[in-house]
Amino acid sequence: MSYRIVHYINQFYAGIGGEEKADVAPEVREGVVGPGMALKAALGSEAEIVATVVCGDSYFASNIEKATAGILEMMKKYKPDAVIAGPAFNAGRYGTACGGVCEAVVKNLNIPAVSGMFPENPGVEMYKKSFYIVETPDSAAGMRAAVPAMAKLVLKLLRGEKIGTPAEEGYIERGIRKNKFYDKLAAERAVDMFTAKLKGEPFVTEYPMPVFDRVAPNPAVKDMKNAVIALVTSGGICPKGNPDHIEASSASKFGEYDITSVMDLTAEAYCTAHGGYDATYADQDADRVLPVDVLRDMEKEGVFKKLHNKFYTTVGNGTAVASAKKFATEIASRLKADGVTAVILTST
């Protein structure tokens, strides 16, 4: 029995038309369409393209949620083992559509998805972490090179084989770290690299240093007397007993706790869930991490209008940047909805 594949393409490759037809809604056709022919040849007998979903690029871009849901429904009917999208080469909207569809397939159908794009296609930056995108030339002239590489990768994924490095497999680096056992101890590898660097011989670092992005600062608070100040912390302060079971390390959640009429964080009522520092001091007096007592004093004195009645907490210890980012985005939207003016974020 061969694997079942559903192919996703745009209106242009389906022969419906160019830009003037880019607003056609998704439709499904049995079997192969357009570039599916070449794909079918490259897949051989091991996999079969059972259906092709076609959608206009503009339609997808202006109805992302509806289009994605509809396309998934169409695909599900064909019980696919994998989905291939494109290749989209350097077509921006087509690339983003392929990316959106493949990400949804991986997340919702739990099956592999592969697309092909030119590295500068905006779909690459947006979706490369979610699934494999094979590197292609910038135009359809590169179809002959793109299709066999995509077919090869999808078959490997279907067979559950180990996927090699970007250079070995021809996909665009996803920026995802994977563990593996090397032949040598890490200490020996370090001394090898050290020796090479000292001698001026070539070496390849195992981890290129990260570059962090920047956000422009927001304007200052002009009218502090009427400001609502909120407290957020990565120091894990929470009600005693850690009712939400925030993990001591690698937190999967944040906590939201009401401090209406709480004037001081006492040892009886608050503690820290953080596993990365000596918790003795925070457990004794959580104000040492989250200065509720002082802010209440200043609120009374009228330095600012109000201390927000909820604080937000998570544990920074060993928690992935992506998780922290997700928590903060959600926290920020709640704070904005509650009319908070500015935030004091404390870290341990």
């Binding site: 920047r214 956000v215 600062p217 927001n218 980012k325 903060a328 003016t341 935030v343 870290s347």
Partner: peptide
């Protein structure tokens, strides 16, 4: 975290011990 709160449009100050990390990750008011 601090960056995402800033990105959402709220002025934020990062009170932290290890200033170099805060500078590396990109807090604006430290």
């Amino acid at each position: 975290m601090v960056k995402e709160i800033e990105r959402a449009g709220l002025p934020v100050v990062h009170v932290c011990t290890i200033v170099p990390i805060s500078l590396t990750v990109g807090a604006n008011r430290i």
